[in-house]
Amino acid sequence: MLTRRHTLKLAAAGLAVAATPAFAQDWKAKYPELVFAIIPAENASGVVDRYTPFVNYLSKELGTKVTLRVANDYAAIIEGQRAGNIQIGMYGPASFARARVTGVKVDAFAIETNLDGTKGYHSVFYVKKDSPYQKIEDLKGKNLGLVDPNSTSGNNVPRFVLDKMKIDPETFFSKVVYTGSHENAIIALQQGTVDVAANWWNDENESNLLRMARKNMAKAEDFRIIYKSEQIVNSPMAYLSDLPEDLKAKIRDAVLNLATKDKAAFDKIYEGKQGPLVAVDNKAYDPVIELITFVDSLRKKKSS
């Protein structure tokens, strides 16, 4: 026998079920288009080629249009999320930390992994293979190539390690050049614009240089590493904190299952050289916040 209490429970359940599609439509009405943006780690055409299948997959999974945007520089993705114009961003660790410390309401939800399951990479200094330089100290008066002020492996970690060596880049080197991307840093070294260049390096299987070699943009054997940092926490994907919870859940589910649900799209990004994206939270990047805060303090000391 159905009591009044049972009837009310069933009615409430029916209302909940009925409300779900309408609730989903609420965020689709507010977000008829979502923007996924990524920092310019390589040239724009390379990013578009690498990430277009992923954006198409995300659009299909979410049931709404997702547009790919390649940021002009690292700061552009930070400011785009601050303004609410970019709902999902693929950051570097330092640029994500910068977003957090400058008040952008954004949360990390997925992190890249390596084939061995680790979640980190390294900053390295490259020189040409045939150059006489064996260590950083040999490059006094030469030109240093960095990537972007908000790059982890291309600026913040290099400045941190140089400080530990008692080296002030602006006085030790003849010139410090920001190249704008990791690829451009290698090209600047290749062309002789700089004598040493900072870059990212995962392991012997993957690095920016190896990616460039696969695209016939450089020969990996033409360069050698003279310094490798300790491991840095891998790059995060992050969404706006104030997105509807059901939308964030759908984004998380789609991204964390990319490697199995659309292996072709996943392989297009990582070319079989990295593991699946896994869950992460903001706390993982607290050490990077400490890093950029330290680098900021160095800059303030020099300007004072």
Rank of each mutant, 00 (worst) to 15 (best):
N216H: 09
M217C: 03
R211I: 02
D222K: 11
R211L: 05
A238L: 00
A198T: 04
Q191C: 02
Y227S: 15
Q191H: 07
W200T: 08
N216T: 01
I226A: 14
Q191Y: 00
V194L: 07
D195Y: 00
I225W: 04
I226T: 10
N234Y: 10
S235A: 13
N234S: 15
V233P: 05
A220S: 14
A220L: 02
N216A: 12
K219S: 03
M237F: 08
A218E: 06
V233N: 04
V196C: 12
L209G: 03
T193Y: 09
A198P: 11
A197E: 05
V194Y: 05
E230P: 07
M217Q: 02
W200I: 09
M212Y: 02
V233H: 02
I226G: 15
Q191M: 10
R224D: 05
Q191W: 01
V196A: 09
P236W: 01
T193A: 14
S207H: 04
S235E: 09
M212Q: 00
L210P: 07
L209Q: 07
N205R: 06
A213D: 09
S235D: 07
A213V: 05
A220D: 09
N202R: 07
W201E: 10
I232N: 03
I226S: 14
V196E: 08
R214D: 12
E206A: 10
L210M: 08
S229K: 10
N202E: 03
Q231S: 14
A197N: 06
R211S: 03
F223G: 08
E221M: 05
S235L: 06
A238H: 00
E221D: 15
A220C: 10
E204A: 13
V196L: 14
D222A: 11
M237D: 01
I226Q: 15
N234A: 15
A220Q: 10
T193I: 15
A213T: 10
A198S: 13
D222G: 05
S229I: 13
N199H: 04
Y227G: 12
R211A: 02
L210Y: 02
A198W: 03
I225C: 12
Q231C: 13
V194E: 06
K219M: 01
E204S: 14
P236Y: 03
A218M: 08
